Simulated assay, not measured.
Amino acid sequence: MFRSRAISRLLCHHRVTNTTNYARPCVNNVCIIRDQTRNLNTVTVEDSYVKKFMNAVGWMDQSRTRLKLTGYFLYESIPYKVAYADWFESLDLPDTFASWFNVTELHVWMLMVRYMAEDVALQVSEKKKYIKGDGHFVRNCIIEALWADVGNKIKLLEGANPAIARKQVSELSEQFQAALVAYDEGLEDDKVLAAAIWRRFYFMSPDVKAEHVERIVKYIRHQLSQLDKIPSGELAWKPNINWLSILEP
């Protein structure tokens, strides 16, 4: 259906020949809390005299540096391993930058859900008190990597105007925040999740095939289940995520 694959070829070529410059973008944070949580601060390094000395003189925090690299590597598993062409062709999605972003955004959200489970939510009276930790920090690093990659890919588009590009990134940022909230609301309810996918991927088109939305929902459930099975230490030290193809059951 979509015979012209210019965007796919362009992004694939950029993925092979370029590395990402992870400059921190301006983006608001959205907290994702899960009832079942893992131990806090599972990705740390023991204190040493060298580390204490560097911290005392204002040098880098080794544990934070390691966590930041983890966030970057986690993000890179998406553009390097997700089969975007399969998504576009099998789900009737246009081969455009917007479709690329929507697919990438969804995978980023799944990583955020998994890593935010590294933090804890304490029950205080009738409310939950959220305790920020390693998961919160790594989540922010994943978001940094996303926006740096978006900025680089927009520059590759033919005839890209810097002023227009900045405006488009700002609009994408707002859409990104709204999508995170919508996906969060669907964590425990397939119908709510399907509605979020219908709005985000198909813009509430009445012509969309229900089986396409259903396939994405099943894909999300499977991937979240697989991510949850990865031990904290393995996820931190070997953040090498193998994303299942959308074509597989």
Rank of each mutant, 00 (worst) to 15 (best):
F2V: 15
A6L: 04
S8A: 08
L10Q: 07
L10W: 01
L11V: 14
C12T: 11
C12Y: 10
H14Y: 12
R15T: 15
N18Y: 08
N21F: 09
N21R: 03
N21T: 07
N21Y: 06
A23G: 04
A23K: 06
I33L: 09
R34M: 13
D35R: 10
Q36V: 10
L40M: 09
L40C: 01
T44G: 13
T44I: 15
D47R: 04
S48A: 09
K52Q: 11
M54W: 10
V57F: 06
M60T: 14
Q62Y: 09
K68M: 10
L69G: 09
T70E: 08
G71N: 05
Y72N: 06
Y75F: 15
Y75V: 03
E76L: 13
S77F: 02
I78S: 01
F88Y: 04
E89I: 13
L93V: 02
P94Q: 03
P94G: 03
D95S: 10
F97Y: 10
F101N: 13
N102F: 07
N102E: 09
T104W: 06
T104F: 04
W109E: 02
M110G: 09
L111N: 15
L111H: 14
M112Q: 13
M112E: 12
V113R: 01
V113P: 00
Y115G: 05
M116K: 07
D119K: 08
V120P: 00
S125F: 10
K127E: 15
K129D: 08
K129E: 11
K129C: 10
Y130L: 06
I131A: 10
K132L: 07
K132P: 03
K132G: 06
K132H: 09
F137N: 02
R139C: 04
C141D: 09
I142A: 11
I143W: 05
D149I: 05
L156E: 15
L157K: 00
L157R: 01
A160F: 06
K167F: 11
S170Q: 12
S170N: 14
E171D: 14
L172N: 12
S173H: 11
Q175F: 12
F176D: 04
Q177P: 03
A178T: 13
A179C: 07
A179V: 04
L180R: 11
D184I: 03
D184K: 07
E185I: 08
G186W: 03
L187A: 15
E188P: 00
D190N: 10
W198H: 15
R199N: 15
A210T: 13
V213E: 05
R215T: 07
V217R: 03
K218G: 01
I220A: 00
Q226K: 04
L227Y: 05
D228Y: 13
K229A: 09
I230W: 03
I230C: 02
A236Y: 08
N240I: 13
I241C: 12
I241D: 14
I241S: 12
S245E: 14
P249Q: 14
